[in-house]
Design a protein around this nucleic acid. Structure first.
Lengths: 320, 320
DNA sequence: CTGAAAGCGCTTACAG
DNA sequence: CTGAAAGCGCTTACAG
């Protein structure tokens, strides 16, 4: 039997007679044959695997439940296509270089890129190398040359601030995400717009930049409390930070929501593990990961993809 | 210039004249040449990458700081050899199959295996496929056919229980790890031995099995409190669980360590983020990851390696 | 130090 | 439906 026939059997079994198929099957069973992926990849040009690349310090990856959820979603959606997901953490510049080299060198058919800060060269490097690429969140400063899927950060923020205004509060503070991340700037923009529309005067002392960590939220809350002790509500750009905020407020003797209402963002597991449970803006994580995978596979298949923005949803619980 | 010369240049530059080297360098720069790894791997039989394979539900990976630390250590030690680490999470059986196939198929030169429960087929599968393999913790039921590196769980447990006895307490409980994990059984064995040696009668109502999660620790502590309300101290097989235990004890109105002393295990970040700070048994994580990497590279180079057991150290803080 | 050549193990038109 | 053959892009003895 020729190696051609075996190969055809391995790749879907088209143009293989039942008899041939049977004898290949039994031979494979008998010898424990397993294809050599390198050889296959060399000849097909594909590797049949995909990377989930995170360019964040490792702590953040472990601390923030958003990554967990996103990772699980991507894994599951890829599993339906029987494609393994390789998780790569680029914590240092050195790691980044090593991993980009690894990726651009054909080891992977495409990459799901998570959390790319403006100034982070990874997205541009991969794009320039022609690697199929989908970012989670619009990569800043790259125009529309990189496909992405994101939640509608601006609109979500607007919903939350409108809700806060609706409870009668005017002195509404905000703790933003890192401002070199799209979720950082867009949520802030939404907050500002709604307040302006409602005729609430701009108050810079009510805004503090956070870093999407619990302890960062705590610190920012204390800063706000100092500069604006009369704050009535605060919109926090992530649930994890909001956990820290609730903590800091309670320690300062304020009750949530009676003294100060707190609104979060994400609707991650963090939202319901605080007391009071957080009123927050749900990111459609499952749709996000599904879209990311769909778009990446489309790119790998040679199609063009663009950016997609998915709607968020206000979830009202007890904190505001 | 022949491709042979270029290849020699790429692989260390031996037997390449300075003139040839220069012209290769400039050609590479000009064309943006990058080697095709598949072709290289096909001919060398190596892939120059290594997997960190975790067979645990994804939550545990994210919740337990031990994994974080171990992962970081392995990444760093491999970085010194310029070898990328691919993280693979096998949460479901389906994932496991997909990833084992991926691995045994030559995509990776070796694997660092974390947390293999007895009954988990992964270690045996990889071993049978002849993949270089180092486990973290002795894989149960596999005899000595798989190399591993572990902390001295038994001796560490002995130290802790001796310390607890030394503070004058006799009614000492234990919350174990999962008993299908070596750390689970060995720490329990150390606990039992020391109590027996001290003439303390065996009291089954003082032992509860935990699962290395915070909430599991909480549950186990409540169970113990019910069955043995006169407990004076408890040795908890992980710091993360101990966090939950301290919580449960305090909620029940007990003070730690005055009413009940608590000893942990790991000396992970969890140990110092509780109040009171945990007296615990330090696992030498950095040495563990260094050894794992060293042994894996040795195996890849064709050497044989065995099991190594590293000493622990008692760290006395406030909880006991 | 250098080049020509074989070989790594697959896939895929191409004839038949 | 099947086999013979070319080709994927490297590495590595082997002569020179």
């Amino acid at each position: 039997m020729s190696r051609g026939t075996v190969s055809r059997f391995l790749n879907g079994g088209h143009y293989v007679s039942p008899a041939a198929r049977r004898s290949v099957e039994s031979a494979i069973r008998k010898t424990g044959y397993v294809v050599n992926r390198h050889a296959r990849s060399l000849s097909t040009g594909r590797s049949d695997s995909v990377a989930f690349l995170l360019t964040e310090p490792q702590e953040k990856f472990f601390e923030d439940p958003n990554f967990n959820i996103l990772l699980r979603g991507c894994t599951e959606h890829l599993a339906r296509h029987d494609i393994p997901l390789l998780l790569m953490l680029a914590a240092s510049d050195d790691d980044r270089r090593r991993l980009t080299r690894y990726i651009t060198t054909g080891h992977v058919d495409g990459v799901l890129l998570v959390s790319s800060h403006s100034g982070d060269p990874v997205a541009a490097e991969l794009r320039d190398a022609g690697i199929p690429l989908v970012a989670c969140g619009k990569p800043m400063g790259l125009g529309t040359t990189v496909s992405y899927v994101a939640a509608d950060d601006r609109e979500g923020a607007r919903d939350m601030v409108r809700h806060l205004l609706g409870t009668g509060r005017r002195r509404i503070g905000m703790i933003t995400g890192p401002l070199d991340l799209p979720g950082g700037t867009d949520r802030l923009a939404g907050y500002r717009e709604v307040l302006a529309e409602a005729g609430v005067p701009h108050a810079p002392e009510l805004v503090a930049e956070g870093d999407y960590t619990r302890s960062g939220g705590e610190r920012a809350a204390r800063r706000l409390l100092e500069c604006a002790p009369d704050m009535e509500a605060v919109f926090v750009a992530s649930d994890l930070m909001a956990q820290g905020v609730v903590n800091a407020l309670q320690q300062s003797g304020r009750s949530v929501p009676d003294d100060i209402a707190v609104g979060g963002f994400d609707d991650s597991p963090a939202a319901t593990s605080v007391s009071p449970a957080l009123t927050t803006v749900r990111q459609p994580f499952d749709r996000i990961s599904a879209e990311m995978v769909r778009m990446l596979l489309a790119q790998i298949a040679g199609e063009d993809t663009a950016g997609v923005i998915l709607p968020t949803e206000l979830v009202v619980r007890d904190s505001a």
